[in-house]
Amino acid sequence: MTAVETKLAAATPAMEEHGVERRVLAIRLVTILFLVVAWEALSHSGLFYEGVLPSIVLIASALIDLLTDPVFYRHLAVSGTEILAGLAIGAALGVPLGILFGSRRFLGRVVAPYVTALATTPKIVFLPIVMLAVGIGSESKIALGALSAFFPIILSTAAGVVHVRPVHLNVGRSFNLTGWQMVRKIYLPSLVQPILTGLRLGLGVAIIGVLLGEIKLSSAGLGFLAGDFYSQYRIPYLYAVLILIFALAVAANTLMGLIARRVGSQAPDALR
């Protein structure tokens, strides 16, 4: 094979891949265009009650209004604080308990059915208990966020503990490490990936828990804002705030995914 033929052979798959990427991009653009046209057609069709499907222009205008209004950022700050506080509390409880239940096999088997049962239950139904216990203010949303985040974190951490390499545990024991030293020197470094996965999943459900709690009963936050627009029938604003909530949730999830990948790629091979 000549040098030219070799180069051509190497270039062909790359060219094919480039062609596929262009096709994928074209499909995405055509899909977006189709959705926009279909939306506008439906919004002007008279098939729905007036204002239920507002024109994209109205939604875009509401979006700009929201983004340039300081009130929106105050609500964003409230929700952000509640979500992060909920996630922090969920992690502060979920990680140590996950290590405990994962490392103590019998204890893990005792609590597993209860943790699984509670993990699969819609957390929003606990809102009444939470409100009775801590009040109807921000605390109840933080508590609901913490309750939501707790389960994916504890489950992911406990599952990770099972996969900690026995050789690492034996090294720790041979050095006569105390319980706390075992956690700090052996478990936590080995559990970076499962904990980050738990945090990513926990963040997603904490966002849902907090915002649903705000929609149900609150006086601030993005969930409250959505509920307020709904009750005032300001539909373009309702769409706008939901678009922003979705964008923020997807961005937060992507960011956590990137952090997990970056930290994972930096972990020593032995710990992966």
Binding site: V24, G223, L242, A249
Partner: peptide
């Protein structure tokens, strides 16, 4: 395949998105 590659990341984003929060929209519609 091209459609799969085009839409998979969109569906993955939807999977991670808080879809339940759309319920006020469906109450309106």
């Amino acid at each position: 395949e091209s459609f799969g590659r085009a839409y998979e990341s969109w569906f993955a984003a939807l999977f991670a998105a808080p879809l339940v929060l759309l319920y006020p929209l469906f109450l309106v519609i």
